[in-house]
Amino acid sequence: MDQWLQALGKGGLSFFERLGRGNVFLLRTLTGLPSAMGHFRLVIQQLHSVGVLSIQIIGVSGLTVGMVLGLQMYNTLVDFGAEDSLGPVVALSLVRELGPVLAALLFAGRAGSALTAEIGLMKATEQLSGMEMMAVDPIKRVIAPRFVAGFISMPLLAAIFSAVGILGSYFVGIGLLGVDSGAFWSQMQSKVDLMEDVVNGVIKSVVFGFVATWIAVFEGYDAVPTTEGVSRATTRTVVHTAFAVLGLDFVLTAMMFGED
């Protein structure tokens, strides 16, 4: 019992210690943002490695998820003669939930882990130390541009995911299953609300982008500077981002769509 409590206390303390370090780190990063905007070339480079290189996985996943949703929903809806509702059902699930959440999870796997590994290796090979010794703050030069890029990319990737997904379900629904194209779009437009659904979805993806990028750059910066430390940090990025995104999604959903 004693040992159990001790383990719990130790775990709790180290958790809060990390959380505190993460917050201090976040503050330092945020104060570094103005200078990152000054070096906009760096941000563009990071937009390339964080955003452009994630398009492929986001596009393919969005298309597949949309097509599968189209097929599955059609099979259920057709029993009620409500196959015209395919558009709104698919659009709502993508725009409100699947788009932001799945895009964030894929983002953690593709871009977040890469960010952690890159920063962790820069730390392990003393590049960050070297920068500091050259009187250049690595938080401003290395971390802040990556943070900005992740923060900008995530909502765009989530929007691409949802849009491609809706197109995927359109192809399946109209091309394969013979749903009426007019009904598909007009039903969708009458059910999907710009503020309630689309903007809330975008807000979610902005929050997820913030958290996912924060976790990724923090894990990299905080990694134990060895090969093993970096690989552990990369794993932690993916796992922690998944927990954070799923937990936050529940909270945000309750806040946004809870009262009606």
Partner: peptide, 25 residues
């Protein structure tokens, strides 16, 4: 890189516009 990033942002904004105009009312 700049061209690719430009393309990425354009596609992203196009997707947002599609969600706003075509999907929602």
């Amino acid at each position: 890189i700049e061209v690719l990033v430009g393309g990425f942002i354009a596609i992203g904004i196009a997707a947002l516009v599609m969600l706003a105009m075509k999907v929602s009312n």
